[in-house]
Design a protein around this nucleic acid. Structure first.
Length: 463
DNA sequence: TGAAATGTTGGGGCG
DNA sequence: ACGCCCCAACATTTC
């Protein structure tokens, strides 16, 4: 199949390992493409090592998605005469072992940007180099890597519009790479685990709603993108705010797992699409990665240090009512139930439920972020962190704290006929019991504004 | 990618 | 015709 290697080069063409992480795709995969173009054999590998992600190992909904995405990737590789090798971490030991078993001389991967993942990659790269292996890393996940986008004074952007302007000026995403024509297998496949043996699926099968809502995998990602670009994007600006309407792209979990990359989305949009409101959403994702890279503590700590002394009120009862969609506020409960049932929530509603938790209920935003982390199929540390800090008012270019959403007003504006609320809170119509509101919207709003003013009056605490 | 309070304007009813 | 009041509709400001 493959053309003969140029004379003289065969000697230093050996096997290359491609370490799949959050880039579970064959198309436009720079690490895979590089390995396939330069090596005599390609060894695709996925290493299950959740402990490497520190406090942010994949949550339950993410593990569900990962299970099916790994199956899809393995199937795609098998169609091309290859396969996905699945092993248990730690990554460095696993890669050394597989390199020894296959005679691989280099390891290729696409970069990750989460603090723990970067630390892990540094350690792995250093260890592989000590073992005499070559390491090549690529950008598969972003239009512009964080280190490449700095302002005039060489500092990271903290304002979205400035970052957007910079990105639009400088981003020049290369044409997406094709699937490598040839993925020659190694002489012998090392022993692999099965996806099932990773036990990513829940023991109690609560995942029916997820399965009815989603199809993980690269093929599904492209179907979703094509449908969005051919039809929904025309009305995106208006429809994206209506939770009862399928107005958004629904690409978020596919992007998180790298079943599709932003370069592919960019090129699929065309010139008109690149001027659209939708592209700005894609750039918010870039901005989130940019911020997490430059401010790695923000996954758990507020970017604006004065918020360290915000008078949060931990309330297990309030948190629990919020988590389970029993606050007595219809739009909030609808959103939380959509999340629990499908692993996803419409973004307009995410803002509303988050505002209620961190402002009306004064529960720390980290509690909300943690719940989303476990329940969202698109849970993504950079995006989750940016969005929670945005709502809480403690992040970069965040909504001012006093911007408190009124969930009743929001429902009137964005779910005027109540279709979304009725779908997820049917007992409002059926006459079954629905909880009384656990809070008074007006009083709790005033309490939140007072808390904010007290924080600002209190002296001290520098960055 | 707010909400609520406050301010302004203009039409209509009425004495 | 006029002033006065009410109030909706919109704009501005404050939180």
């Amino acid at each position: 199949m493959s053309p003969p290697a140029p004379a003289g080069s065969a000697a230093h063409r050996a096997a290359a390992i491609v370490w799949f992480q959050q880039d579970l795709r064959l198309r436009d995969n720079p690490a895979l493409h590089a390995a396939a173009s330069s090596a005599r054999a390609v060894v695709p590998i996925y290493i299950w090592a959740p402990e490497q992600d520190g406090d942010w190992a994949p949550g339950a909904a993410s593990r569900w998605w990962l299970h099916y995405s790994l199956q899809a990737l393995d199937a795609g590789l098998r169609e091309r005469g290859s396969r996905l090798l699945i092993v248990r971490g730690p990554p460095l030991q696993a890669l050394r072992r597989v390199a020894a078993q296959t005679g691989a001389t280099e390891v290729c991967w696409n970069n990750r940007y989460e603090p723990a993942a970067r630390e892990c990659a540094r350690t792995v790269a250093a260890g592989l180099l000590r073992s005499g292996l070559e390491v090549r890393t690529f950008n598969g996940a972003l239009l512009v890597e964080p280190a490449e986008a700095l302002n005039e004074s060489g500092k990271p952007y903290r304002v979205y519009t400035a970052f957007l302007r910079k990105l639009l000026r400088f981003a020049n995403p290369s044409t997406p790479l094709p699937i490598p024509r040839d993925l020659p297998p190694p002489g012998q496949w090392p022993k692999s685990r099965t996806v099932d043996s990773l036990r990513l699926l829940p023991k109690i099968r609560w995942d029916e709603g997820l399965a009815n809502s989603w199809t993980p995998g690269e093929a599904s990602a492209h179907r979703t993108l094509r449908r969005f670009v051919s039809t929904r994007i025309a009305d995106y600006r208006r429809a994206r705010d209506m939770p009862a309407v399928r107005g958004t792209s629904a690409l978020s979990p596919h992007l998180h797992f790298g079943e599709i990359g932003p370069r592919q989305v960019w090129h699929a949009l065309g010139a008109k699409g690149r001027a659209s409101v939708f592209l700005r959403e894609l750039v918010w994702r870039e901005f989130a990665y940019h911020l997490l890279h430059h401010f790695p503590h923000t996954a758990t700590e507020p970017l604006r240090p004065e918020f360290k002394r915000f008078p949060w009120k931990r309330s297990a009862a309030a948190l629990r009512a919020w988590q389970h969609g029993r606050t007595g506020i219809p739009l909030v409960d609808a959103g939380m139930r959509q999340l629990w049932s499908t692993g996803w929530m419409h973004n307009r509603v995410r803002m509303v439920v988050a505002s209620l938790l961190v402002k009306n209920l004064l529960v720390p935003w980290q509690e909300g972020a943690r719940w989303f982390w476990d329940t969202l199929v698109d849970a993504d540390l950079a995006n989750n962190t940016l969005n929670w800090q945005w709502v809480a008012g403690c992040g970069a270019d965040a909504a001012p704290y006093f911007r408190v959403f009124n969930p009743l007003t929001q429902a009137e504006r964005f779910d005027p006929d109540g279709a979304y609320v009725r779908r997820w809170v049917p007992e409002l119509e059926s006459g079954n019991s629905y909880p009384e509101p656990i809070l008074d919207l007006k009083a709790s709003r005033e309490r939140a504004l007072d808390a904010y003013h007290n924080m600002r009056r209190t002296p001290g605490l520098k960055a």
